[in-house]
Amino acid sequence: MAQSLYNVFFSPTGTTRAVVDKVADAIAADLDISNIIVNLTQPTKRPVAVGGEAGNVLVFGFPVYGGRVPAVLADSIKKFDGEGVYAIPVAVYGNRDYDDALVEAVDLLTAHGFKVVAAGAFIGEHSMAPRVGEGRPDAADLAAAEQFGHDVAAKLAQENYERPQVKGNRPYMDAMAPRDDRPKTTDACTVCGICVKRCPMGIIDAEDPAKIGEGCLQCNACVKSCPVDAKYFDDEMSLKIKAMLEGNFMARREPELFL
């Protein structure tokens, strides 16, 4: 019987955490086990070893970047110890598609010894185009995430450890080509430091937040967290992507669950 659940997530804008917290809390409550939160968002918090003893449970939440698992998590996943640990990958995407991200997560976890028993894809507000999936996850999404957690717990309680068939392709789609597009900063900036703390790559200068180093993920954590709306992207490619998303992916999509 499981002794602990590891709620592990990477969530620059908080949408992924909102979903995985619901899933993890429901599983831990139903199985009456401890719930250990491991937040991989900040660079000083990763990589870290998670998994523990056989029989434990891992809920692994991540945002989908270009249809794939974020490459920034590669080193963290290498530290995972999943021998005999039951895993539930949870992908959160911006209402376009999760493409091969979920099946890639299944493969990565399986390669590190985890037994994947369920998986889910949920919708969050798109980081680059907030009108796409606006307000997601909403109350219905969070209720679905909580029910998914209850269903996973019931499956584990019945000692059903079968791996579900998850949507996605092998080989995976090509990862996005690296781009060095960085947010800009207006004169409204008050140097409050919020964006510095929220940046998952640690590349915003604390003394002058207008200075951004290489390695931006375009997660928009700095844009969404700025209390005076001083951060923004206006490079040509970002604007093209935003227009494409708003022109083609406004219709509501619903969570897809695999048990």
Rank of each mutant, 00 (worst) to 15 (best):
residue 26 A to Y: 01
residue 26 A to C: 07
residue 26 A to S: 05
residue 26 A to R: 06
residue 26 A to L: 03
residue 27 I to W: 12
residue 28 A to D: 10
residue 30 D to V: 00
residue 30 D to H: 08
residue 31 L to H: 00
residue 32 D to H: 09
residue 32 D to G: 06
residue 33 I to M: 11
residue 34 S to H: 15
residue 35 N to E: 08
residue 35 N to T: 05
residue 37 I to L: 14
residue 37 I to M: 14
residue 37 I to V: 15
residue 37 I to Y: 11
residue 37 I to K: 15
residue 38 V to S: 03
residue 38 V to M: 06
residue 39 N to D: 15
residue 39 N to R: 10
residue 39 N to A: 11
residue 39 N to W: 08
residue 41 T to G: 00
residue 41 T to F: 04
residue 41 T to L: 00
residue 41 T to Q: 01
residue 41 T to M: 00
residue 42 Q to D: 12
residue 42 Q to C: 11
residue 42 Q to H: 15
residue 44 T to Y: 15
residue 44 T to V: 15
residue 45 K to N: 15
residue 46 R to Y: 03
residue 47 P to H: 10
residue 47 P to V: 01
residue 48 V to C: 08
residue 48 V to E: 14
residue 49 A to C: 10
residue 50 V to S: 08
residue 50 V to I: 12
residue 50 V to H: 13
residue 50 V to C: 14
residue 51 G to Y: 12
residue 51 G to H: 05
residue 51 G to S: 09
residue 53 E to K: 13
residue 54 A to R: 02
residue 55 G to P: 04
residue 55 G to D: 08
residue 56 N to F: 06
residue 56 N to P: 03
residue 57 V to F: 02
residue 57 V to M: 05
residue 57 V to D: 02
residue 57 V to P: 00
residue 58 L to M: 07
residue 59 V to A: 03
residue 59 V to H: 09
residue 60 F to C: 02
residue 60 F to M: 06
residue 60 F to N: 05
residue 60 F to Y: 03
residue 61 G to H: 04
residue 61 G to N: 03
residue 61 G to D: 09
residue 61 G to A: 06
residue 62 F to D: 02
residue 62 F to T: 01
residue 63 P to H: 01
residue 63 P to T: 01
residue 63 P to F: 04
residue 64 V to K: 00
residue 64 V to A: 07
residue 64 V to Q: 06
residue 66 G to K: 06
residue 66 G to M: 13
residue 67 G to V: 07
residue 68 R to S: 10
residue 68 R to H: 06
residue 68 R to G: 04
residue 69 V to N: 10
residue 69 V to L: 14
residue 69 V to G: 00
residue 70 P to A: 06
residue 70 P to H: 07
residue 71 A to W: 09
residue 71 A to Q: 15
residue 71 A to T: 13
residue 71 A to C: 13
residue 71 A to L: 12
residue 72 V to D: 13
residue 74 A to V: 06
residue 74 A to C: 10
residue 74 A to W: 08
residue 75 D to Y: 01
residue 75 D to E: 14
residue 75 D to L: 11
residue 75 D to N: 09
residue 76 S to F: 07
residue 76 S to K: 07
residue 76 S to N: 12
residue 77 I to F: 08
residue 77 I to L: 14
residue 78 K to R: 14
residue 79 K to V: 03
residue 79 K to I: 10
residue 80 F to S: 03
residue 81 D to I: 15
residue 81 D to E: 15
residue 81 D to L: 14
residue 82 G to D: 02
residue 83 E to V: 05
residue 83 E to K: 14
residue 84 G to R: 09
residue 85 V to A: 02
residue 85 V to G: 01
residue 86 Y to K: 13
residue 86 Y to M: 14
residue 87 A to D: 01
residue 88 I to V: 15
residue 88 I to K: 00
residue 89 P to R: 05
residue 89 P to E: 04
residue 90 V to A: 04
residue 90 V to R: 01
residue 91 A to I: 01
residue 91 A to Y: 05
residue 91 A to C: 01
residue 92 V to T: 11
residue 93 Y to V: 08
residue 93 Y to F: 11
residue 93 Y to D: 10
residue 94 G to I: 02
residue 95 N to P: 08
residue 96 R to A: 04
residue 96 R to E: 05
residue 98 Y to M: 13
residue 98 Y to C: 13
residue 98 Y to E: 08
residue 98 Y to S: 09
residue 99 D to C: 12
residue 99 D to F: 12
residue 100 D to P: 07
residue 100 D to K: 05
residue 100 D to T: 03
